[in-house]
């Protein structure tokens, strides 16, 4: 098979990618190394390969998403898979029923890869129990968003050459953030020292048990940081009052040059998007080509997702 022969060697132990918690260093590095090759592929004129030719990939999104969904769609298509997007609108009560029923229905259509986003923590793992294909968690509630953490790690590794030994701050709405949790697990596994910075009402209890050091002051938390990751304030997940106003939030936690000055002089700025400009990040910082990696993150996202889809497909039956 010429198609198989073209593929670089890869050892990846997981049949699903449900989270970064518990992923081994070997698995992470295997994905990041493979991602590097897909960055090259994506920069060519002919961006298409046949790694997933004949495979069916379904993107099942129970929560609105533009970036992640299009990134996964592009990733699948560039690998030659047939990609179908399904957006399931969810009424609050029927969510769970829809999930299991949809899983069983979709499984009967024999997809090879299922990319799932769901507003409830643990929902993707539940769905993975009901299907026979490879499942990628594209974000479940406040739990995990593993491909975001992988693309963040790839972005940092390509810019700074390594992850180990770096001091990285994750700032903002830690309580509701699956990106924060996935990044804490992944970056600490790779040997970075991770800090989380949030107002006390958006700092989840016991976060330090996950391996991050917690700060409530931007100035103290950013001290000596190589990378500053900003998070989106998830106003849609907030019931009740967590912060008095976005104005006060920006004053205390919004990343501007004044606050950024407390990090290392050449510290890099990241954001998983979509940004609330003027809420968690100042536009000048976000658009600073020397400091901001935000656009690279988006580019790396496609490559990382190609690597993940490729890696999982190797566990699928081949004949």
């Amino acid at each position: 098979m010429t198609i198989q022969a073209e593929r670089p060697e890869l050892s990846f132990s997981q049949t699903h990618l449900l989270g970064t918690e518990g992923l081994s260093i070997q698995d992470i590095n295997a994905l990041l190394d493979l991602s590097d090759t897909y960055v090259d592929q994506n920069r060519r004129v002919d961006k298409k390969s046949a790694v997933l030719r004949g495979r069916t990939q379904i993107n099942l999104f129970f929560e609105a998403s533009t970036r992640t969904q299009s990134s996964f769609e592009l990733a699948g298509k560039r690998l030659g898979a047939d990609v179908m997007n399904m957006s399931v609108s969810t009424s609050a009560i029927k969510k769970g029923e829809t999930l299991i029923d949809t899983a069983v229905t979709l499984n009967a259509m024999r997809p090879d890869l299922l990319v799932v986003r769901h507003p409830d923590s643990g929902a993707v793992a539940l769905l993975a129990q009901k299907v026979d294909c490879g499942v990628v968690n594209a974000g479940d509630g406040s739990h995990e968003h593993p491909t975001q953490a992988l693309l963040d790690a790839l972005t940092i590794r390509r810019r700074l050459g390594k992850i180990e030994g770096l001091r990285i701050a994750i700032c903002g709405d830690i309580l509701h953030s699956r990106v924060a949790r996935s990044n804490i697990h992944l970056l600490t596994t790779l040997g970075a020292s991770v800090r989380v910075i949030a107002p006390p009402t958006l700092m989840p209890g016991g976060i330090e048990k996950l391996g991050a050091k917690a700060f409530t002051s931007m100035r103290e938390g950013l001290e000596g940081c190589d990378v500053v990751m900003m998070l989106r304030l998830q106003l849609e997940r907030m019931t009740g009052s967590f912060i008095p106003s976005t104005r006060e939030y920006f004053h205390l936690y919004g990343l501007d040059y004044e606050k950024l000055a407390h990090a290392k002089p050449d510290a890099l700025v990241m954001h998983p998007g979509p940004m609330n400009r003027g809420v968690e990040i100042d536009s000048l910082v976000a658009d600073d080509v020397d400091r901001s990696l935000i656009r690279e993150q988006v580019e790396m996202g496609v490559a990382v997702r190609m690597a993940v889809l490729d890696a999982l497909s190797r566990h699928l039956p081949n004949s």
């Binding site: 643990g122 509630g141 406040s142 739990h143 949790r181 209890g205 016991g206 330090e208 996950l210």
Partner: peptide, 8 residues
């Protein structure tokens, strides 16, 4: 810390 880990 367990609820934080599980995102619940």
């Amino acid at each position: 810390d367990l609820s934080t880990r599980l995102g619940l």
